[in-house]
Amino acid sequence: MIHDFRYLKPGTLQEALSMLAEWRDECKIICGGQSLLIVMRQGLVVTDTLVDIKGLNELSYITYDDGEGLRMGATTTHRAVEKSGLLKEKYPILVAVEKKLASIQVRNWGSIAGNLAHGDSSGDLAPVLIALGGKIKLGSVKGTRVVPLEEFYTGLFETALTKDEMVVEVQVPPVQPRTAVAYKKFNLIESDQGIVGVAAAMTVDASDTCKDVRIVLGNSGVTPIRARSAEKVLLGRKSGDRLLEEAGEAAAGEADPVSDIHASEEYRRHLIRVLTERMVRQAWEKAIPLE
C-alpha cells in the first residue's frame, strides 16, 4: 500500500524548485509515475511529500538546432519522442528505441526524465543517450548545471542528483557526419526490459576508418557502462570480422553483470560479446554513406 503523503502541485518550474529546496530529502518528485508508483506501492519508497511536475508543460518540448543539437524537456513523454518527426529525421535511433520501450500505455504517460532519474540500469534510454554523447541538465533554486549522462549514474538506482535538484532537460549534441547509432537489447519478449543491452555509436572518416566510437552496455553492471577497452580496440582501425570479435570480447570483459533467474553472469557476458559485435558492425555499416 502506498504510504500517505502531502500532495504538492507546482504551477511553474520555479515553484517546483522552491518546493524541493524547502522539503529536500523529505520529498519525492513524480511525473508520469510509471516507475515510481510501483516502488511506492511495494513500500520500497516511502515519502511524506510528493511534488507532482506532470502538469509542468513548460518542460515538455523537443527542440533542435544545428549548433546546439537536441534539447528535450524533462516532462516530455516517451510517446512524444517516439512520434516526433523531428527526431525521426535527426535522431532516428531514439525513435527506434522508444518503439520497443515498455508498452504504449507506459510511453503515453511516462516521461523521459523520470525514466532516466529512476536510475534503473536495465533501462534502454540511458545507454543510447550516452552513446550519443548525451548530457543531463539539473536544476535547483541555486541555478542549473549540465552533467554528461555517463557521469550521472553513480550506483545501483543512484544518480548525481542532490536532494534539492531535479532533472530539467536532456541534451544531445548534433550528430557528426558519417555517424550512425545502433542499439539492441536482448530479451525473450519484445519490449521487455533487456537481459543486457548494447548501444554503439560509430563515426567514420573519409576512408571508413573508425574515427570515434562509443559503446555503452546496459544492464551489465550497477550503472550503464562505457566499454572503453572495446572502443580502444576499434579506434583508428578499419572494420573486419576479427576486429569486431576482439571488440566484443573486450566489452564482455569490461562488463560487471549479475547472475539472476533470467541469465547467469557467463551467459550475460556471452550476450554482451555477441551484441557488441553486432551493434558495432551495424553502426559501422550505416555510418558509411551510400555512394
Partner: peptide
C-alpha cells in the same frame, strides 16, 4: 519471480 515482469507470458507480438 512472483510477478508479471519476471514471469514471462506470451504477448501479442510473439
Amino acid at each position: 519471480n512472483p510477478n508479471l515482469v519476471d514471469y514471462k507470458v506470451m504477448r501479442a507480438t510473439e
